[in-house]
Design a binder for these strands. Sequence first.
DNA 1: ACTGCATTCATTTTT
DNA 2: TGAATGCAGT
Length: 741
Amino acid sequence: MSDHSPAPHLPSSTGEGEGYLARLNPEQRTAIETTDGPLLVLAGAGTGKTRVLTTRFAHILLTERAKPWQILAVTFTNKAAREMRERVGVILGEAVEGLWLGTFHALCARMLRRHAEYAGLTQSFTILDTDDQMRLLKQVMEPWQLDTKRWPAPGLMGVIQRWKDRGLTPARVTDADDTDFANGHARAIYTAYQTRLRDLNACDFGDLMLHVTEILRTRPDVLEQYHRLFRYILVDEYQDTNTVQYLWLRLLAKRSGTQSNICCVGDDDQSIYSWRGAEVENILRFEKDFPGAQIVRLERNYRSTQHILGAAAGLIAHNGERLGKTLRSGKDDASGEKVRVTGVWDSDTEARAVCDAAESFRAKGASLAEMAILVRAGFQTRAFEERLVQTGLPYRIVGGVRFYERTEIRDALAYMRILHQPADDLAFERIINVPKRGVGPAGLQKLHAAARARQVPLAAGTQALVAEGGLKGKMGAEITKLMDALSSTRDILVREGHVVALEFLLEESGYLDMWRNDRSVEAPGRLENLKELTRALADFGTLGEFLEHVALVMEHDENAGDAKLSLMTLHGAKGLEFDIVFLPGWEEGVFPSQRTLDEGGLKGLEEERRLAYVGITRAKKHALIYHADRRRIYANWQPSMPSRFLDELPEEHVVRKNNGGTQPRGLNLSESVFDNGPLTSRRRQDPLAASTTLPNFQLGDQVRHPRFGVGVIIGADRHQLEVIFESGATKRLLSSFIEKV
DNA sequence: ACTGCATTCATTTTT
DNA sequence: TGAATGCAGT
């Protein structure tokens, strides 16, 4: 903590001499300076929400209302937490240590480590990933002998997770709750699952919230501790909280005898996660939950042009049940372009139209980094990807398979987990036959039996079996080798540290050889990822710290850098902004999604509409919406109707154009759409220009492409290289995508 | 214990 | 359409 003296405190100051409060609008200022008592800040899209949150945090510190560790600041994403920490640091002029600032889950993990015994765990409990959860649940389900077709494990996992989202421990699940699954066996299996977790000294993600909330509910002494600790609570994205998160916050905020200094920031119009357990009602109910609450509305938008805001506002006005906000443009640029709605022939034409438009914007000086294609569902990305590759536009898919979720990384992590926590049976099960050691279901059974007979974890039981010579043949030899490798690695861990230990173990276990001997195109990439993993490991002091980081943070900066067009889902785009946003697939059934309509009725429709609102409001300068007349669904082409949302966009903010109906003649469908004057954006040095002057590729050079693997250059023109790949496919590609082998 | 064929079924996924 | 699982065959 700093003993650095804060700026002279001027509670509710008039603003003189306080740089951090300068240049805020009156509403923002109110949101920051109303420090005491419950406060709800309704922050529309692009109204400076993050700024308010961080400035408020700093303000509380600078006016000496609380010490850094007396503020609880909660976000949903690691990204938001990181950003907040950085920006608070900037205002204070130094990084602050010891903050209770993080995601719900990270903060709960921290609390749970302190009070693990109240949840029947030890302080060093493991946090399972989704694979492990599912494997464990399948094991637990076995004795029930359910028809796995009718009652699949993922379905039950969903039920359990929803219970956890609602703060229901097995004991709190009522008969009425337990009707959905397997003729009322769900609660019993849930109970068994929780018992298994406890035996493994493990918890799943939902348990982090659930256990802590349960402890706060049932241990007044623990709750009291936190009441004394936290003077101020800040919550980001309140509209996305689920019931446990709400309970957790309310327990922490409601201190007897004092008012709750809880400030929740959110936007009911951007609630798009109800299917994950989020309850918009939490934000709608705020005043009831916290009597005397003040409400501040941030409605001045500094992001988008008036037409974009007008279109978004007109759309969202069709929703009922809103707290009600009207976004006003903070800038007065009536010059902005209207939202463009384009009808096209089919989904391929759509992809072409979008890529042509992107190209055209780029030609006018816009950077690809400022463009995004936002789709409703993952399957829509494929058409765009194909077209982008053909066109040679660099792009990145946001929210694909994440680094820590790749097989090779999860395997390596399992190796680390078994080092760190020898009782981690799930980790052991994962790696026992990776690489292949001839251990199948039967072999695994034998190991389990050995462990059970000795009442020890799986790894220890296996070790004992090996020592007795109870394992024969190839399997016996291989397992012995693995166990030896593990024990030598433990020595190395002590003597030479965790980085060397990991490298040693991956080598000795034969794991690296497994990939080296793999001839598939992904193998070299996987080895590269493993190298990257050891590099990342070096940033942490201990294995334990690293594993905690991985379990909670699950992200890893990769190939950021070059300007690339972003391709992602609308959900993934929340909180981001781009100069130019492409919104394809606005058709009935796709968007709004048929399934949501079927399952969620009017509520579902309204959530889809909020999603559309989120999509449009991501755009700063240009929003381009597309709908196709026909779309290929699985095998066959089906006609599609324009989305009802299109009718809800106010005419004065929209330009409509229809290229559908007739088969395209091929070229530049979209050209006439974009001759609407030059972009206002400054012309940056185009990062692509640099990449086209690139390395001296020659005909016949061996090259590697991240998607297509290894190939040979068979042709080239100024910007593109023609490459024939091992698969036999020939592609025209931008050289920046390719590296020489 | 592994391989290959058939069958199934397709949203969104902050942690 | 294609990927991902499950079962039967070797």
